[in-house]
Amino acid sequence: MTDAQVLLTLAVALFAIGFLGVVVRRHILIMLMCMELMLNGVNLSLVTFAHEQGSPLGAVLVFLIFVVAAAEIAIAIPIALLLVRRKRTVDLYAYTDLKG
C-alpha cells in the first residue's frame, strides 16, 4: 500500500461523498457545497497523479479548476439567491416546475 493509493482512495471517497450529497441533500446551498467537495476530490487525484508522474500538467489543471470553481460559484450563488427570493424557500423540491 503506497501513499499514492491512500490519497487516490481519499480522492475517490471525497468525490463519491460529494456526489451522494448532491443526490440526497435537499438544501440547494448544501448541494452547491457538495459540488465543491467533488471538485476538491478531483483536485486531489490530479495532484497525486502529477506527483507520481513528475509532470507539472496536473498542477496546471488544478489551477484551472480553481478558476472554473470560482466562476461556477459566482454564477450559481446569484441564481440560487434569485430562486430563493422568488419562492422563499431553499428546498429543491419546490423548484420541480422549472422543467417547463
Binding site: V22, V23, L92, Y95, T96, D97, L98, K99
Partner: peptide
C-alpha cells in the same frame, strides 16, 4: 419530473 436530484 423536474427533480434535479433524480437526474443527478
Amino acid at each position: 419530473t423536474g427533480n434535479l436530484q433524480l437526474y443527478a
